[in-house]
Design a protein around this nucleic acid. Structure first.
Length: 636
RNA sequence: GCACUCAUAGCUCAGCUGGAUAGAGCAACUGCCUUCUAAGCAGUAGGUCACAGGUUCGAAUCCUGUUGAGUGUACCA
């Protein structure tokens, strides 16, 4: 396409003496004859002729002067060009066939890039939301590495804070020394039981307290809290009694009241007390904290292994949450931040339309954003990074806008290269997942279920003769993974999506299974070739092959786009582009496979060409699958 | 209230960043296993690209407004 573009640029220069015009070429739509189409409309601005006339003139010139042009036709302002078989064989096929690394780029050569993904709390098993995060991060890392970047994969564990103390406190009070080992439970599932216990106690105590408050029984509650409570209740009444019922506002106010009551419960105070002890370094608390987190990490590791996802490093919030305070101090001196009377520190981002933002509490402790500032600066200084990518849910769009704006204001030149790879929510057909309501799909359970479906379907089809039990197990697991991974990755990251469990286990149509099936068929051809002793065709000369079939040409054109797709997916941070590409490629292969017989033909040149084309397809599909984090399967 | 994101077939999603008659899969219907894997292929049916304006040779795509949905919103992480 680039070659063609330069030919046309020369033509335009020769015919109209124009140099700096954009030459717009695209692939010809199926309904029309030809493979490439030049849009002549843009040229009408410079040449005082109709687009049809320009198309005709360029077409005639190219036909006369370019060896690869076979014929052309003009529809309105579209110049459709058909290229000779020699072009497909000698230019396109040659490059695809001779370059075993086709698609690999060096746009990231010498650049170090850090990608942070997953970043879970250490109090519950990983669920569907984490899965989308993990898959996006993993695939993005693969794609960037394929583009030449030195990629560092990191996972930031949210391992401290009140939410962690909740499960610790519940364990301390109720576990009677039980452990994951003693109960034969996976660590993350073990810990979440205590987290849920803690949440329930908090809920019970809150409800109890609210009932008392409604009857004006405030006990020892401080006057400020009482006034605040009464204010909120008044507001709620106003909204409820106003003619247009703002349900969103009502639930918001109700939540605020609940939160207020929560802070007055015994349980909440005990949690806060534990957090304070943790921060003070109480050895007993620290030991418990380490123990419980270790259980969770062990559980997480098993899930990562199942998914074939690895990290190069782990960051722990407990080690980074104090970072950033020094930066605030420096920024205060440079008047990037300002201090209020109560001692809290703020930044004014109203010029960026992001309002005022707190960066240090009045008691001098840091908030979430302070920590992120510190972590970003530390990473860039220690690792000499070119860029950082944060794979984090779209709920935090605002947070990352603020973070990047602050770092820019502080004068870090790399701040403009921080990128928030924001991905949309994963909903169930029944709505949003909520731990409390128990409609959470967690990764382990999903994998188990998919494994069973893969097993059942495979057994019903009965095509796995001769495979050992171990090989079968591998097959089922990889099929299950392929289905899930592709299902989540094919959707544009930034869009919210609905995860329909029934649809995701469907193995027909636009699915990961289909991709694997296509790949397995390709490999099947090579097995057959070996059986029939036809493998010598792999290195045979294809120069004499005439009459390239339509399906072959379509494959060549599409295979050749792989490089462009890789580049785009890296630039747009979207594995979905690779996913959709490889699906379309598999469809074209199925087409080819259906239309021509690869291993039987009266013409040996045809067999040679097709066997070699088959090999190129195998390579590009394999690479695409790997970029998405799927393990290509030779048989299924 | 304000900010950001989204709206395409009954459902789930594409649509190469402004190009031709908007594409797949699922679900429904019809064909195709005596040649390389039928987890497949071919076909039928299904659309006011939320709505209304604007920009221009040309708009699902860009701009403005309206409606609807989601998310966030100053001492939680």
């Amino acid at each position: 396409m680039k070659v063609l573009q330069s030919y046309i640029a020369q033509t335009v220069q020769h015919l109209y003496s124009l140099t700096d015009v954009s030459i717009e070429i695209q692939h010809t739509r199926k309904e029309f004859e030809g493979q490439y189409t030049l849009l002549c409309f843009p040229l009408t601005k410079f040449v005082k002729k109709s687009p049809e006339q320009i198309a005709q003139e360029i077409g005639e010139y190219l036909l006369k002067n370019n060896t690869y042009i076979q014929k052309f036709n003009v529809v309105k302002g579209f110049l459709n060009l058909s290229l000779k078989d020699t072009y497909w064989k000698e230019v396109i096929f040659e490059e695809l066939h001779k370059n075993p690394d086709f698609g690999r780029l060096d746009i990231g050569k010498g650049k170090k890039i850090l990608i942070e993904f997953c970043s879970p709390n250490t109090n519950k098993p990983l669920h569907l939301g984490h899965l989308r995060n993990l898959l996006l991060g993993d695939s993005m890392a693969n794609i960037l590495a394929f583009c030449g970047y030195e990629v560092i994969r990191t996972n930031l564990y949210n391992d401290r804070g009140a939410h962690i103390c909740k499960s610790m406190l519940a364990w301390q009070k109720f576990a009677q020394g039980k452990t994951p080992q003693s109960t034969h439970t996976k660590g993350d599932y073990f810990v979440v039981e205590y987290y849920i216990m803690a949440e329930n106690i908090l809920k019970e105590q809150t409800t109890f307290l609210l009932e008392k408050w409604q009857n004006n029984d405030f006990g020892q509650v401080s006057p400020e809290i009482i006034t605040k409570y009464k204010e909120l209740v008044d507001k709620l009444r106003q909204v409820e009694n106003s003619p247009k019922k703002d349900t969103k506002k009502i639930t918001q106010l109700k939540d605020e009241i609940k939160e207020l009551a929560q802070t007055q419960t015994e349980w909440f105070k005990a949690v806060q007390d534990m957090l304070a002890q943790w921060e003070a370094g109480n050895p007993e608390i620290i030991a418990l904290w380490k123990q419980m987190n270790a259980w969770v990490y062990e559980g997480f590791e098993r899930t990562y292994q199942q998914l074939h996802i690895r990290f190069d490093r782990y960051d722990y919030e407990s080690q980074t949450y104090l970072l950033g305070k020094e930066l605030v101090k420096q920024g205060l001196e440079k008047s990037i931040f300002y201090q209020k009377e109560d001692g809290s520190v703020w930044i004014d981002l109203s010029q960026e339309k992001l309002d005022q933002k707190l960066v240090l509490r009045s008691n001098g402790t840091s908030v979430y954003i302070t920590q992120d500032m510190g972590t970003a600066v530390q990473r860039h200084e220690q690792l000499n990074l070119h860029q950082s990518i944060y794979v984090v849910a779209s709920e935090q769009d605002y947070h990352f806008k603020v973070l990047i704006a602050i770092l820019k204001k502080m004068g870090y030149e790399w701040a403009s290269r921080l990128y928030h790879l924001s991905y949309g929510m994963v909903y169930l057909p029944t709505g949003r997942m909520k731990t409390r309501e128990g409609n959470v799909v967690d990764i382990d359970a999903l994998l188990t279920e998919m494994y069973q479906v893969a097993q059942k379907t495979t057994q019903e089809l009965g095509k796995t003769e001769g495979l050992s039990a171990q090989e079968l197990e591998h097959l089922y697991h990889e099929l299950a993974l392929s289905a899930i991974k592709y299902y989540l990755l094919k959707v544009d990251p930034q869009k919210d999506m609905i995860f329909n469990p029934e649809e995701s286990i469907d193995f027909h149509g636009n699915t990961g299974t289909y991709l694997q099936y296509t790949y397995a068929r390709i490999q099947g051809i090579f097995r057959k070739a070996q059986e029939k002793e036809l493998l010598h065709y792999q290195s045979a000369d294809t120069k004499n092959y005439q009459n390239v079939h339509d399906t072959e040409r379509n494959l060549l054109i599409y295979l050749y786009r792989f490089e462009e797709v890789v580049k785009q997916s890296a630039e747009q941070y979207s594995p979905a582009l690779v996913a959709n590409y490889v699906y379309e490629l598999c469809r074209l292969y199925a087409n080819f496979h259906h239309e021509v017989v690869i291993l039987h033909d009266s013409n040996p040149d045809a067999i040679a060409f097709r066997v070699q084309l088959n090999a190129v397809c195998a390579r590009i599909i394999k690479k695409s699958l790997e970029l998405l984090g799927l393990t290509p399967l030779d048989r299924m």
